[in-house]
């Protein structure tokens, strides 16, 4: 059996705020297989960024506090490692690309210096070798005339180019896992498409395992093998792209998909009623229940566990007390609203 690259078990993270304890990530568990591309979607505050920052030890504690759980990366618990050991993993075995390419590069250092930094830090190459590797990486991410770019500063590059540089930095040491946190959100749509093409191409060539965090369902559909829909620090639904998109089983993913504009169906866009729950006082049951038109009394009472969907492909899991296809069929007026 193949070892998973990442195995997150019962991760719970809270923030101690003056207003009370904020439950950011609640009992989160999932595994990621080698070569898999996982797309994590969810709105702001769903815990999607917080849980990756937690596993890399990048979350300031306090105010954050890891209540329980373990994050096994190739068999090692990242949460139990010292800061020093984590430093050796970050950038080398786990690469990370952040949202805003405008601010994630240091404005006063050249592109070359920032690329060499990670290469020299982890690969132990000398200056000339690191420069050669930097040129190679910039070529890999499709930057024209890479050798000349090394001497340039971030402000001399366009947003798309900078994000390519960030991806090059993320991939510099051939990481096992690449985490992209909203990596295409700050880019305009054409550049977004180029970056997605680039990632797909790199994934096929290098076989890197990828976690792609976004709130854009379209990007996930383009890129991921598996989609994981998160809400209020929990997984609402998870599974291979096709079944989740074609027949979602969670009312939340169903609502998200219905709020996407469609070329085929001409109807009003669906609007999810209400707003995300206050995570200092989360609802007792299914966190989405207050906004869910199909919610059953039990939804308001008990938290549903994440279970395999009986009549779908293996790996398609949902956390819901209701049976969504049946509920939609029973209430066509909601579905057509």
């Amino acid at each position: 059996m193949v070892e998973p690259v990442l195995d997150i078990r019962n991760l719970t993270v809270v923030f101690d705020t003056p207003a009370g304890t904020l439950h950011a990530v609640n009992d989160l568990s999932y595994t990621l297989m080698p070569g898999e591309t996982l797309g994590i979607v969810g709105e702001s505050g769903s815990g999607k960024s917080v849980h990756v920052l937690t596993m890399l030890g990048l979350l300031p504690c306090p105010p954050a506090r890891i209540v329980s759980g373990e994050v096994l990366f190739r068999g090692r618990d990242l949460l139990a490692l010292s800061e020093r050991e984590l430093c050796d993993i970050r950038g080398a075995e786990i690469g990370m690309v952040f949202q805003d390419p405008m601010s994630s590069l240091n404005p006063v250092l050249t592109i070359g210096r920032q690329l060499r930094e990670v290469i020299q830090r982890h690969a132990g190459l000398d200056h000339a070798q690191a420069s050669a590797r930097a040129v190679e990486l910039l070529g890999l991410v499709g930057i024209p005339d890479p050798a000349a770019r090394l001497a340039q500063y971030p402000h001399q590059l366009s947003g798309g180019m900078r994000q390519r540089v960030m991806i090059a930095i993320g991939l510099a040491c051939d990481p096992t896992l690449l985490i992209a946190d909203e990596a295409t959100t700050a880019l305009d749509v054409t550049v977004q498409a180029q970056v997605i093409d680039l990632i797909r191409d790199l994934k096929n060539r290098l076989g890197t395992t990828i976690i792609w965090i976004t709130h854009d369902m379209g990007v996930v559909a383009e890129l991921a093998d598996t989609i994981q829909v998160m809400y209020a620090g929990r997984i609402m639904e998870r599974g291979p792209i096709a079944p989740v998109f074609h027949q979602p089983r969670s009312a939340y993913s169903w609502s998200l998909l219905r709020s996407l504009p469609s070329m085929a169906r001409h109807r009003r866009l669906y609007q999810i009623p209400g707003s995300p729950p206050n995570m200092i006082h989360p609802p007792p049951g299914d966190p989405f229940a207050p906004r869910n038109p199909f919610a059953t009394p039990r939804c308001h009472r008990d938290v549903p566990p994440l279970r395999q969907v009986a009549d779908s492909v293996p790996g398609h899991q949902v956390a819901a007390w209701y049976d969504l296809p049946a509920a939609v069929a029973a209430h066509p007026e909601i579905a057509d609203a």
């Binding site: 993993i89 970050r90 950038g91 952040f98 930095i169």
Partner: peptide, 14 residues
């Protein structure tokens, strides 16, 4: 608080 500090941490800088 700028993101480049976070990205520096993410590449293993102390």
């Amino acid at each position: 608080e700028r993101e480049f500090v976070l990205s520096a941490r993410a590449i293993g800088a102390s």
